[in-house]
Write a protein that binds this DNA or RNA. Structure first.
Length: 421
DNA sequence: TCTGGGGTCCTAGGACCC
DNA sequence: TCTGGGGTCCTAGGACCC
């Protein structure tokens, strides 16, 4: 059996931990640049707000109802996630972290010693007591069914945080009541296709004969069908190292000069290189894209992207940034108002790096050490304290807007809460 | 005026090899 | 006039996830 633990309205729940007065009140967390709503509490949903709403379009609802608004603070959410996941890892040996607010736990063998439902209820209670984050738990023979269970647990308080699907009767009942487009692995396209084939519920899909499923779907669809029938086949082995790393941002304002574009790209390149070193990998390619504002039909539009392959896979900030700057020279066009840029690292290798007889970069080891020194300085004294001059100052116009950001309560000594008794 | 960011896997088709 | 058979690798685009 698998358990999945899913935090409820995760970003909002974290904000509530540090703003206890918000219990029972509507709150939303915004995307980067305070652009759209990415997380909201049930109270905010009840006011007619939705995930994905641009803030400026719903501002009147927000103001009229005194909805609490937070800018996104991924450092804070990541730090809290680690705490939550550590608690479950103390209770279950093998876990797979799936996202910032979700983790799968392998309960093989637990049923001979424990009542699984009560065991997981204990874990959920500890998480709530120790972190104040509410989680919903699904327990089932497959991950897809477990995810369904966690959603039932979230929506119906009667489950007391844990919904277990451990018999065929429960499975069929769940499949009958669950929304087809909420099934894990069924996106918009598959949903429309299933509807056009006359399938209206997960149960109707699960009950289709295998021959029918193979005729209409390829591997992903077949896997979902099997999982709904209780045969595990979705493999989510824990991802510790990324195969590609991206840093991209929309700008607070549109920018036009090549110096500004270069500053943004250099800053994103440094951030990519930092993430790369954090997982002890090297990248074989770097790509850069530039992008105008596609919401502005009155302005000329532009998108371009180009890549560079390194002679030897690298994790050196200077080498990666230099290559990215050369790409900007190649794809920058004057006269465009740029809204977004991004840097992507690909062909990532771990461990052994293929050497090159004609490597133009001397002292590779020293260069990597230099980059690592930057990392430790910035770790100690704050992000971007030491950086390349081409990244520009700390208050560039293109920097994101973030007007309601919570302090880094869990990762910055300056930001730790003071409690007065 | 204001509209997010970061990933993975799968498939089909082209180009190439012998 | 007749024009094979069996592979691999790469890439772009689609679909999905949070």
């Amino acid at each position: 059996m698998w358990a999945v633990l899913d935090a409820n309205s995760y970003f909002c729940s974290v904000e509530k931990v540090f703003h206890p007065g918000l219990a029972g009140k509507p709150a939303v967390v915004l995307s980067s640049n305070d652009g759209i709503i990415v997380a909201l509490t049930p109270e905010a949903k009840a006011l007619g707000l939705h995930r994905g709403d641009p803030l400026f379009k719903v501002r009147s609802i927000v103001e009229r109802n005194h909805v609490n608004v937070f800018s996104t603070n991924m450092m804070l959410y990541a730090a809290m996630s680690k705490r939550v996941q550590n608690i479950i890892r103390q209770s279950v040996d093998y876990c797979e972290s799936y996202s910032i607010d979700e983790i799968f736990a392998d309960l093989s063998g637990f049923d001979s010693h424990f009542n699984l439902e009560e065991y997981m209820r204990g874990v959920a209670l500890r998480i709530k007591l120790w972190t104040d984050i509410p989680v919903s738990v699904g327990v089932a023979p497959t991950k897809t069914l477990a995810k369904m269970g966690s959603k039932f647990a979230k929506n119906f308080p009667g489950y007391r945080s844990v919904c277990m699907i451990d018999s065929d009767a429960k499975r069929r009942k769940a499949l009958e009541l669950f929304e087809l487009d909420d099934v894990w692995g069924v996106g918009r396209r598959t949903y429309e296709k299933l509807l056009s084939l006359g399938v209206r519920t997960p149960l109707e899909f699960a009950d289709k004969p295998g021959e029918w499923v193979h005729r209409h779907f390829t591997k992903p669809g077949v896997q979902t069908w099997k999982e709904l029938n209780g045969y595990p086949c979705v493999d989510t082995a824990e991802v510790l190292k990324r195969q590609s790393i991206t840093t991209s941002r929309s700008f607070g304002q549109m920018i036009t000069t090549i110096e500004q574009v270069k500053a943004s790209v250099a800053s994103f390149a440094a951030s990519c290189a930092n993430k790369l070193r954090a997982q002890a990998s090297s990248a074989g390619t770097v790509s850069v894209f530039l992008c105008s504002n596609f919401f502005r039909e009155d302005l000329p539009q532009y998108f371009n992207m180009a890549s560079y392959s390194f002679p030897v896979a690298t994790a050196d900030t200077i080498e990666i940034t230099r290559a990215a700057m050369a790409i900007v020279d190649e794809i920058y066009r004057p006269g465009i108002k740029y809204k977004k840029s991004g840097v992507l690292l690909g062909d990532i290798v771990n461990g052994g790096v293929q050497q090159n007889l004609f490597d133009p970069v001397p002292n590779r080891k020293d260069r990597l050490e230099l980059s690592k020194t930057l990392d430790s300085l910035n770790q100690k004294f704050g992000l971007k304290t030491v950086r390349l001059a081409v990244e520009g100052g700390k208050t560039e116009e293109w920097k994101v807007k973030s007007e309601h950001r919570s302090p880094n309560y869990l990762t910055s000594l300056d930001d730790i809460l003071t409690v007065q008794i």
